[in-house]
């Protein structure tokens, strides 16, 4: 069972790397999907560089969401910040309910075309899961453990860094994973505002009515998502099992 999970993981990774670096090798798979001699493999740019650009955008957005959401989560669980909890919740929720496409439409006139409006849209979209998980992670820390920490003379800062955050880590990581997975898919819309990414492949397919392109773009995004999910999940499990929790 464990063996096959590991080999599946490796197979998926090898497939992904092989496909983005030498897509022509897979042309035979996509040929049946093309009509009138249209190209079977995306030919308006390198799949590899588009994949890397896509990942870079998602990574940047998730790092920014993580920093803001975790700091905000810490702030509203401190005595001084507690009164801001409802307010921060509503703001973060708006970030999630406001559709990313609409964010793009609003952002483009302000920051121009390219990667910037996409980053803004993904950043806002990814805040909620990380914020909510930071809150639940920090509030789940057993009161007895905190009482012991305080009783041994740990300062509020030492308690936060040495006890609360390490114990909340698996839950926070789950939030980051959720946010990253959502953003991997959502980032494809960035191509409508000229951000480099795998959305280009899909949009090119839509414009030229080429199902092979659409499928390729979708496939790479899906493989990335699966691998990322799997990797982060493994990390969460490792940390959680050390804490004696099962996930």
């Amino acid at each position: 069972m464990k063996m096959s999970a590991a080999s599946l993981r490796i197979a998926a990774f090898v497939l992904l790397v092989a496909f983005v670096s030498a897509p022509q090798l897979f042309a035979f798979v996509f040929e049946p999907l093309t009509e009138n001699g249209a190209p079977a493999i995306y030919n308006q740019g390198s799949l590899l560089s588009l994949t890397l650009a896509h990942l870079r955008t998602v990574f940047g957005a998730v790092v920014a969401s993580t920093i803001v959401a975790v700091l905000l989560g810490i702030f509203v669980t401190r005595p001084a910040g507690m009164e801001f909890l409802p307010l921060s919740r509503s703001i973060v929720n708006i970030g999630q309910t406001f559709p990313p496409v609409a964010v793009l439409a609003v952002a483009v006139p302000i920051v121009g075309f390219g990667e910037a409006p996409t980053l803004i849209a993904l950043f806002l979209y990814g805040l909620l899961p990380i914020f909510e998980n930071t809150l639940s992670g920090l509030t789940q820390v057993p009161p007895l453990v905190l009482d012991a920490a305080k009783g041994m003379g740990m300062s509020p800062r030492q308690r936060l860094l040495g006890v609360e955050l390490p114990l909340a880590l698996p839950v926070i990581l789950a939030g980051i994973r959720l946010s990253a997975i959502i953003n991997l898919g959502t980032a494809t819309i960035g191509s409508t505002v000229a951000a480099k990414g795998l959305g280009e492949v899909i949009i090119a397919g839509l414009q030229s009515n080429n199902v092979a392109f659409i499928l390729q773009g979708g496939l790479v995004v899906a493989l990335l998502a699966a691998l990322l999910h799997d990797g982060l999940m493994t990390l969460e499990r490792t940390i959680a099992s050390r804490l004696g929790r099962s996930m």
Partner: peptide, 29 residues
């Protein structure tokens, strides 16, 4: 904090840090 470093404190259900080893727990203060 200084006062508490000088006074040992044990509670029911021990309150050990789940993310630290036995040695790490004992080494706290």
């Amino acid at each position: 904090d200084e006062l508490r470093h000088r006074i040992g404190y044990v509670i029911q259900g021990h309150g050990l840090f789940p993310h630290r080893t036995v040695a790490g727990n004992i080494a706290t203060v």
